[in-house]
Amino acid sequence: MNKPLILVVEDDKAIRKLITTTLETQGYQYHTAGTGEGSILEAVSKQPDIMILDLGLPDMDGVDIIKKVRAWSNMPIIVVSARSEDRDKIDALDAGADDYLTKPFSVEELLARLRVSLRRVRYDREKLQKDASVFTNGNLKIDYAAGCTWLDGEEIHLTPIEYKLLCLLAKNVGKVLTHNFILHEIWGGFASDIPALRVFMATLRKKIEKTPSQPKYIQTHIGVGYRMLRVGDEGNFPDPKP
């Protein structure tokens, strides 16, 4: 991918300048918008690879922007916001954001999050050219058609719930999935709760992680949910213990 195009949606001129200067020094192309309406117009007309989005815009809440974009686009959306409460993060991620960075932030961390998202974009594009029935991530392989999973070339036996959880994470690799989203997708939101989800996730990790206390594939976002890392990305974000 040559010179990825980033859409920066931020009404604070100083922060917008900080982000765009950082992008420019790294060779990224960018467009900017300072309002929600402007961000939608830019997203539709410019078709950026990634959107960096502030939630507190003067004319529209950022969560509403995420929902509007998700109606027609799967581009990664990285939220950069002063809102630090878990509820704000969950709302944004449930609406379809891929990542959430709290202000104040370091430009190094922002660039790391961008690199992860760009790897996801590259992978998604390559995936269209491959057989979509097989997922491979490092030494982990899932054959969706056969309903089988291998690790280091050996088949591992998962319970039906563990397999569903693994497939859900794999089909959203690189994206934080909230507890509520997972519960709805796996159990319809009725048959289980967050403590039970943590138990299933712990048993799944024991089967696919060589060192469950230092997971390689499944990253915990405490109070929010889980993310499957593309192997090679996990070094960017230390994983809290579940």
Rank of each mutant, 00 (worst) to 15 (best):
G174V: 09
M75C: 06
D131T: 03
G38P: 03
I66Q: 02
R125N: 13
K171T: 15
G62N: 11
S39F: 01
E154N: 14
L140E: 08
N236M: 09
G36A: 06
T149K: 02
S84P: 00
C148M: 12
G232S: 09
T102D: 02
A92W: 01
P242M: 07
H179N: 15
I90H: 02
I65W: 08
Y226M: 04
M51W: 03
H184T: 13
A97L: 04
T102Y: 02
P240V: 05
H221C: 12
K210I: 06
V69P: 04
G38F: 05
H184R: 14
A43R: 11
E24L: 03
A97H: 06
T203L: 10
H184W: 04
F135S: 03
K130L: 13
R87S: 12
K103C: 09
Q214V: 12
L101K: 06
E24T: 08
T178I: 11
Y163L: 14
Y217E: 06
N139Y: 05
E234K: 06
F190N: 09
I182S: 07
Y28L: 06
V199T: 11
K164Q: 15
Q47R: 14
V116C: 06
E162I: 09
S45E: 13
T149V: 15
R16E: 12
T178V: 11
E209L: 11
D124L: 15
V80E: 00
G27S: 08
I52T: 15
P48D: 04
R113S: 01
T136S: 10
D98K: 00
A146Q: 14
N2V: 01
D61T: 04
V224K: 04
I186P: 05
P4A: 13
L23R: 10
V9K: 09
N139V: 02
R230M: 13
K67N: 08
I6R: 05
V44F: 03
G36F: 06
D54Y: 12
A97R: 07
T136Y: 00
S81M: 04
S133Q: 13
D64I: 01
P212Y: 01
E42N: 05
A97D: 07
K17Q: 13
P195F: 10
I52F: 15
G34Q: 12
V199Y: 14
